[in-house]
């Protein structure tokens, strides 16, 4: 469980807080979309959840551990895996397997334990066979899955994804979302920072932040059906949702965020 209690955070003491009185409770196994316009504070929330930034006021608890507690730091950072937007900039190792090994090596685990975790993690994200490849020869989607593998090798129970698909082509995006879904299926918690309506739809719950404050916390279906709020948060509505809205105004009964088949069925049942 990840718990934010009245968290306030400043980057600069003379500026406005990046996160302001923010409270949130994310249960194990939830998949939550974290949404907000650029500069709203959502990336700050992502870093606070991993203990990479520490709250100036309030506290963040990860599985009951206070992120400010220095003696719990390794446990917090192992429990919460972080995947950033730019695939290239989070790879440390000179080869795929050495990169996955980076975290466990930092924990000073014995070599055979590292080897076992590395093999499992590479397997879990579908990069088997590429162990010896140099990272710059991977596709962008493979690089993002490598970053997920790096978190899995730390035995992460929660994944914080900061716009992990923004730079990817459709195939790469799908492969990354598949890897995330697999992590979820095994009971992992996912916090997914995104402004893509179709990715929000993959999460049951949406948490929206604006100017560092929580402005929405509820079912993502409710967010996606609220055009005004979406616009204020910088989310492009899915075109099908916009079609559905126009159709339902004309008296056709269609789900608010439908797929193609559902619209066609609503029109020609």
């Amino acid at each position: 469980m990840i718990l934010f209690e009245e968290v306030t955070f400043w980057y600069r003491h003379d500026g406005a807080p990046a996160v302001d009185g923010f409270s949130l409770r994310i249960g194990d196994g939830e998949r939550v979309a974290l949404v907000g316009p650029n500069g709203s504070g959502k990336s700050t929330v992502a870093l606070l959840a991993d203990g990479l930034l520490l709250p100036a006021r309030g506290r963040v608890l990860v599985d009951g551990l206070d992120t400010r507690d220095a003696s719990a730091r390794d446990r917090v950072r192992s429990a919460v895996g972080l995947v950033l937007q730019n695939p290239e900039n989070q790879i440390v190792g000179a080869t795929v397997e050495e990169d996955v090994a980076f975290g466990p090596e930092n924990l000073a685990l014995p070599p055979d334990e590292i080897r076992r975790r590395v093999n499992e993690a590479i397997d879990a994200v579908g990069l088997s066979g590429l162990e010896r490849r140099e990272p710059h020869t991977l596709s962008e989607g493979q690089k993002q899955r490598l970053a997920i593998a790096g978190a899995l090798a730390m035995r992460a129970r929660h994944l914080v994804l900061d716009e992990p698909t923004a730079m990817l082509d459709p195939a790469g995006r799908e492969s990354v979302l598949d890897a995330v879904a697999r992590f979820r299926a095994e009971g992992g918690t996912v916090i997914h920072v995104t402004h893509d309506a179709s990715e929000i739809a993959l999460c049951e719950r949406a948490v929206c932040i604006r100017d560092g404050r929580l402005v929405f916390d509820g079912a993502s279906a409710d967010l996606l059906a609220d055009a005004a709020l979406m616009d204020a948060l910088g989310i492009e509505p899915s075109p099908l949702a916009a079609v559905a809205k126009a159709l339902s105004e004309a008296g056709v009964s269609v789900p608010p965020v439908p797929d193609v088949e559902e619209v066609v069925r609503a029109l020609w049942r």
């Binding site: 991993d50 950072r77 730019n86 900039n89 980076f102 070599p111 080897r115």
Partner: peptide
Amino acid sequence: RRADELAVAMEARCYVSGRRRTRMH
């Protein structure tokens, strides 16, 4: 910029400057 992000990614995976590490190989 890259260095900045890389530092975040390294800390997120428990890198602490000067601390003892082991190696897979």
